[in-house]
Design a protein around this nucleic acid. Structure first.
Length: 929
RNA sequence: GGGGGAGUGGCGGAAUUGGCAGACGCGCAUGACUUAGGAUCAUGUAUCUUUAUGAUGUGAGGGUUCGAAUCCCUCCUUCCCCA
């Protein structure tokens, strides 16, 4: 009866049926425990790549598992659809961003459906639709009302390439994180969110099960440092406030440094120095932040011709301006203590400024002349008046006795005060581009600002806008949008900045709850049941962006009362812990990245002649690597190919640049006739997939060839979920065989003979062991080991059938259990097999098999006998063995007698077997001589 | 420079309150079936040697321990984040 496993037909059939029956509709049901599983929503770039599959299908498998174990699971999907790529694509292809985005969404939806995920499509949310962004604007309005959103002039990151401002998080190494183009600093009036408002709460991760790496990154990103604020004064009396984490070194301050953008620079600069200083400030403005911060760079700066008074000892110290001090960090001014800060030290050496040690480590006598670098370690204070002799440790903040003492004194005397500084700056949300959510603000006469009333939301993004980038928002030039009236009916202009798209994606998990709701951003009835997200999966690259923004957003939502109704319902339903809503996602797991596989380039021999610096080839032949060298005919592996230029490298490492002439004869074994230049394959390193490198794995092709189930299972099997790695195409065969074997087991004959008790118990044992291990691995995101266990069960079932010693009942029981365990991984084939075994539709609505430890337990264990680290014997023993019995057996064993010889054991150590998933580990006896 | 990961066969990877290293799979080898094999089946597959109750072996070196891939120290390589 054996029918071939036709994955295409099976997958199509069941996808249709599931959709028709709505088995993945996800509805509130207070009678059941809930599980909100969320995976990061994609940007509609146009094509689903293998990375999307790697992120989504394991998450889907886990959501399915949770559902089978009795949870009511919410697992939604949507699109993060505003943003620059759409606008850029639109500019390039001369179509509207709507059009580009929507046709991409259409296409990706179709691709997503082929995955066989349990997404509830009726909950789909798309951030660029008015029904969605109306509420993004509504949140902005609430934040504006409560002061969480404000407008301010600030030095911002301006990208000349993108013609827009970027948030700090989007600037990496002084370059835009997406295009890698330089970003410059510019003063502009912009909209901000008070990111720092919840900063201490954001440092608290106690409620969260998040990867340690993300917690570390967010902590560092927020960058809390304890110290003191101290006010110095210029000779004319202008206060210059500084922040320092090392108030204990105040007596060692020998000069001050202002950031080039510091407002006092111009006022304090002496006339004779003005020209120099202004030139320096102008030059600094052209440098990127990264350049300015680099420690190995020469520390430039100029003296402004004025002095300040150090309040702790009334000393006059010179004031400099230097670009290693940032206006955005602290107050933009520092006291420089070259003896105890490395950057100040380098600056002082460079400009022959005084270095005065004020902390002396045990047994050392530092002087300015003997120091070769700053001393940032422990010691005792010197030259510090009343504090001489105070102990300084390496501890930070008040934990350091010297720092604590000085802070207390600063507060007493009023010279300074204790202060905490954060690296984190407020969230700049303005963007001067078209394709984003409009900021619902109207500018009236003068500086009057009013928000658009809620009943006029959404402020629609107008169509028919010229959106070529010009450096200001394209909306300014669109009169019908720009010109409006204020609440008094007077002419006014509309805010033309749009919002950072990270804002749209900061609250999408709430919109999924009721994506078409036109009364509120989300339905509190749904929210009270589903929130917060229980498990969130996505890429770690969002550590300091999306994952921090969304934590801020949840708190801001709570602050403006967005959860009030939700909380009431929660309490009425007995969910008392309503504070949990301030955290959006309780558990986070980051999947790794699937990289392009390494590939050797073609090894070629070229014929032609040397012309200037490159070799012009009229013949290129792909040859085996070991081919002998022919003089005058360069050969080597193609390391790189740009158009018709090949970069060859031979075994000795010699490189040759070859230009392949237009009508050159190109021979590639296996290809008939003359090949094209672009059929010559260059070397590929293991790296991120990208179209330009030609190492992209197309999931559609894989699905067509192997089926979605195989692709899903292979992605889960071949990698550690949290690590990822290079795509190895060959390995998929193992998974393909596995599913074909499962198919064959279900299709094949059912045993007809009578069962043998021990064989049946063995099969039952293996089944229950597999239940335990598969459950554990799904729970722990260890998808690869789960599938390995499933494969092992396949092996056992095949062996059991060959031996023909189990009854039909025992056989079918094992087979059914295996199919239930398979359902989360490979939903289509599992459904088909389940139907063929006569199971009740749908397999995805069945209960997860129940694990019984008694049935899983092996009756016999192997007692492992060690002498030191070496195994000297093994004995089969009953699982019930105790310490006495094990030691006696061990000492009497052949191996031990031989190993001991005439010696007496000094000690005999017994380690009982530990209960693990599905079994008990083997006990161990170690004989010590 | 600082912080955080990672390093295990030819390859992907498994094993963590310290207890038989290499599960599961790919690849490879030998054999079977076959007109054929990039199908299927069986067996084998860490390394070395003097081929067995053998020795060595988890990036290198050291330490703790009856026992270390796992814990500690130093170093190397590599990835990520930050500066």
């Amino acid at each position: 009866m054996s029918e071939r496993y036709d994955h295409a037909a099976i997958e199509r059939r069941w996808q249709k049926r599931w959709e028709a029956d709505g088995i993945y509709r996800q509805k509130v049901d207070w009678a059941k425990p809930k599980h909100y599983a969320l995976t990061m929503l994609p940007y509609p770039s146009g094509d689903l790549h293998i990375g999307h599959w790697f992120a989504m299908t394991p998450s889907d498998a886990r959501a399915r598992y949770k559902r089978m174990t009795g949870f009511n699971v919410l697992f939604p999907m949507g699109f993060d659809a505003f943003g620059l790529p759409a606008e850029n694509a639109a500019v390039q292809n001369n179509i509207h961003p709507w059009e580009w985005t929507y046709s991409n969404i259409e296409r990706m939806r179709e691709q997503l459906r082929t995955m066989g995920t349990m997404f509830d499509w009726e909950r789909e949310a798309i951030s660029c639709t008015p029904e969605y962004y109306r509420w993004t604007q509504w949140f902005f309005a609430r934040f504006y009302e409560t002061g969480l959103a404000y407008r301010d002039e600030a030095l911002v990151n301006w990208s000349p390439t993108l013609q827009t401002v970027l948030a700090n998080e989007q600037v990496i190494d002084g370059k835009d994180e997406r295009t890698q183009q330089p970003v410059v600093q510019k003063m502009m009036t912009q909209w901000f969110f008070r990111y720092r408002h919840f900063v201490d709460e954001l440092l608290d991760f106690s409620q969260l099960d998040w990867p340690n790496a993300i917690v570390q990154m967010q902590t560092n990103w927020i960058g809390r440092s304890e110290g003191a604020r101290v006010t110095f004064h210029s000779e004319l009396g202008d206060p210059i406030e500084i922040f320092t984490t090392r108030p204990d070194t105040l007596w060692g301050a020998t000069f001050m440094v202002l950031a080039p953008e510091h407002p006092l620079v111009s006022k304090l600069t002496a006339e004779r120095q003005r020209e120099t200083v202004e030139a320096y400030v102008a030059q600094a403005a052209r440098r990127s932040e990264l350049e300015r911060m680099a420690e190995d760079r020469e520390k430039t700066g100029v003296y402004i011709g004025a002095s300040a008074i150090n309040p702790v000892n009334d000393e006059r110290i010179p004031i400099w301006v230097a670009d290693y001090v940032m206006i955005g960090y602290g107050s933009g001014a520092i006291m420089a203590v070259p003896a105890h800060d490395e950057r100040d030290f380098q600056f002082a050496r460079q400009h022959q400024l005084e270095i005065r040690p004020v902390i002396q480590p045990e047994g050392e006598q530092f002087t300015a002349e003997t120091m070769s670098e700053a001393w940032e370690g422990e010691g005792r204070m010197i030259h510090s008046g009343r504090f001489d002799g105070t102990e300084i440790t390496r501890a930070k903040g008040r934990a350091n006795p010297g720092i604590a003492a000085v802070i207390d004194w600063l507060q007493e005397t009023g010279i300074g005060e204790e202060s905490i500084n954060y690296r984190l700056r407020d969230w700049l949300i303005s963007r001067q581009r078209y394709w984003g959510c409009p900021i619902p603000i109207i500018h009236g006469e003068g500086d009057a600002i009013e928000r658009v009333p809620d009943d006029e939301l959404p402020v629609l993004l107008p169509e028919g806008v010229e959106f070529m980038p010009t450096g200001r928002s394209p909306l300014i030039d669109h009169e019908p949008f720009y010109r409006t009236t204020d609440s008094a009916g007077k002419p006014a202009r509309r805010e033309t900045d749009t919002m950072d798209t990270f804002l749209c994606s900061s609250w999408y998990q709430y919109r999924y709850l009721s994506p078409h709701d036109d009364r509120a951003p989300f339905d509190p009835e749904e929210a009270a049941y589903w929130l917060p997200v229980d498990t969130y999966t996505g890429g770690a690259e969002h550590a300091t962006m999306h994952l921090l923004y969304t934590r801020w957003f949840a708190r801001a939502m709570d602050e403006v009362g967005a959860f009030e109704e939700t909380k009431e319902i929660m309490r009425a339903r007995g969910r008392e812990e309503t504070d949990i809503l301030r955290e959006p996602m309780l558990q986070l797991r980051n999947q790794g990245q699937v990289l392009g596989a390494e590939r050797e380039g073609h090894y070629v021999r070229v014929e032609g002649r040397m012309e200037e610096s490159r070799f012009q080839a009229h013949r290129v032949t792909v040859i085996p690597r070991e081919s002998p060298v022919i003089p005058g005919q360069p050969q080597g592996e193609i390391k790189r190919r740009v158009e018709n230029i090949l970069h060859l490298q031979d075994g000795a490492g010699t490189s040759t640049v070859v230009e392949v002439l237009r009508d050159a004869e190109i021979t590639i074994p296996g290809l008939p006739g003359t090949a094209r230049v672009d059929q010559l394959l260059p070397h590929l390193d293991v790296q991120r997939m990208s179209k330009s490198r030609g190492n992209v794995v197309n999931p559609d092709e894989l699905v067509q060839e192997y089926g979605a189930d195989t692709v899903r299972a292979y992605l889960m099997f071949a990698f550690d979920f949290e690590k990822g790695g290079p795509w190895v195409p060959e390995g998929i065969k193992g998974v393909q065989r596995w599913l074909a074997d499962v198919w064959e087991l279900v299709q094949g004959d059912v045993p007809t003979g009578a069962g043998q008790a021990e064989e049946e118990a063995q099969l039952l044992r293996r089944t229950h062991q597999t239940i335990a291990r598969v459950s554990e691995s799904l729970e722990d995101f260890s998808f690869n080991t789960g599938i390995a266990e499933m494969m092992a069960l396949r092996n056992d079932l095949q062996a059991a059938r060959r031996r023909e010693k189990v009854s039909a009942a025992a056989w079918l029981n094992a087979l059914r259990t295996m199919i239930l365990l398979l359902a989360p991984y490979a939903p289509h084939i599992a459904e088909e097999c389940w139907a063929q075994l006569g199971g009740e539709y749908s397999v995805h609505q069945q209960a997860w098999p129940k694990y019984d430890h008694e049935l899983a337990q092996e009756p016999m264990l192997t007692l492992v006998i060690q002498g030191g680290r070496r195994v000297i014997d093994r004995i089969e023993v009953p699982a019930s063995i105790d310490e006495e019995g094990a030691k006696t057996l061990a000492l009497a064993s052949n191996g031990v007698r031989k190993w001991l010889g005439e010696q007496e054991p000094r000690r005999v150590i017994y380690i009982a077997g530990r209960r693990k998933a599905g079994t008990i580990s083997d006990p161990v006896v170690n004989i010590v001589v």
